[in-house]
Design a protein around this nucleic acid. Sequence first.
RNA 1: GCGCCUAUAGCUCAAUGGAUAGAGCACCAGCCUGCGGAGCUGGGGAUACAAGUUCGAUUCCUGUUAGGCGCACCA
Length: 529
Amino acid sequence: MLTILKNKIQHTLAGNFKDFSGLPEVIFTPAPSHVNADISLTWALSAAKVMRKNPLEIAKKVCEILESFEEISSATFLPPGFINIVLKDDFLVEVSRDRRLKDRSKEGVVPTEKVLIEFVSANPTGPLHVASGRGASLGDSLVKIFRALGHACDAEYYVNDAGNQAELLGQSLQARAEGKEPPENGYHGLYLVDLAKKIPQDLPKSEYGRFAMEELIKTQQQDMKDFGVEFTRWFRESELHKEKALDKTLDFLKKTGEVYEKDGAVWFGTSGENDDKDRVLVRSDKRPTYYLADIAYHKNKYDRGYTHLIDILGADHHGYVPRMKAAVKTLGKSEDSFIAIIHQLVHLIENGEKVKMSKRAGTFITLRELMDDVGRDACRFFFASRTPNAHLNFDINIAKKKTNENPVFYVQYVHARICSIFKTAKEKNIEIATKVLTENLAPAERALLSKMLWFKPVLESCVRDLSPHHLTTYLTELAGLFHSFYDSCRVLDENNLQLTSSRLFTCALVKERISKGLELIGVSSPEEM
RNA sequence: GCGCCUAUAGCUCAAUGGAUAGAGCACCAGCCUGCGGAGCUGGGGAUACAAGUUCGAUUCCUGUUAGGCGCACCA
């Protein structure tokens, strides 16, 4: 409904200023707290450039136009040309009742865009560590947000089960089974000690690698499940080999003329605007590289009908992006059909010092340990609240405290409080209204309703920036406004049942937003805490 | 050496080029004979440094400093 108003304003302004071309788009932003309005526009400021007129005069004219709108109570302008809109209470109430996230105007249209987000994709040689948790949180939240807004979006985990890692893994496992230390370049994590105890008695040693890998894949799948992350598909590299996808991809690439042989290896001419040097596809010993397999995998994604591929990678793999972009281009796909989200690494801090993590030495902290210490909700909320391309500091001491130093409790508490109110209301047989009373709307309740206008726009920001952190910020703000409302507006008042049921409805709306928002980042909405 | 990312309050995080830079936690002062005090109200406290573009810069450009990551016929 807010979109409808925006479009209406856009058209009206276009009509009123039809002498000008290239007028800016109308963009609604929340009004800053000190101006006491619902919506702000900077349209006059940007229009001033196009019109070559004083922005303040434009703003004045716009306000005159907006004042005639039936949805708008007042429109005021301030230097240098800000416009602040106060909605009429009944319109605000109507809008806040609208829970639709999907745009109904597009219903019936066959979706032409299919997004595939690939994330985590950790090697099946050990349990998942905390950095994978960040990628998992990002990916899963984005998939859920994309879907909530009505986009077709799938989630995929690429299982690298075909490399020569299985052999090394097998050797490491065998060493552990014999009570020895794994080979120098092997896997030293203690998880293999536990796994060694589970080796079936009649299993030939040649199968140890396979066995360990399958077990570790199961562990990773359980980790993801317990972390609240769902994948549409766990795609195995071995599937590509089965259908000779690497050979076929290589043939395809050869036809483009960018493939050549040198020193007995097959090279791909990726250098140029993207990459800084050419890359090997097939080694001189005829074994394909990971790169060729990954090109085949991405080709497979396109062939399955996905129009937009999003890969979520840790910063330690960012150098990989240029060659993938080069490959995408050679596959005949537009460069913007492939997007890499690079998230910076997670630094664990314990007792004020950085925890050094080494996968080879087996001294890394697993996602499982973190979840057990901190709880899934706190983990998910914490990971989701930072923009991907910034480093994330994770203070283990604070995390372990399970105190309200983590804002997730602040948000969840709103949900628990509302549930408690509902419980009391039910005991007293007070019904929830289907509408909020617009007369005598208390300031705190009005502020709360106004905040709820921004739920969907916030989700759209998340899609725009490919990050769920706007949502956690929003939820914290919404929670703050609710606590404030709760404090100043008594909900249950048996002397005024009409007001009571109206406020119960406001609570119901908040509860819906909070719980939906938390759900989108994989956090639970407890009814009691 | 080259490339990518980052620097905002004591801590952890926000801010499509906009207004008085917002929150949570911590700290100080208040608030419970009513729906959950894991709460509310008030207070102090921040854009690494230097130039530039702009009516306007935390945001964009350049440089400096500090930190993280990457530069394989590994994945």
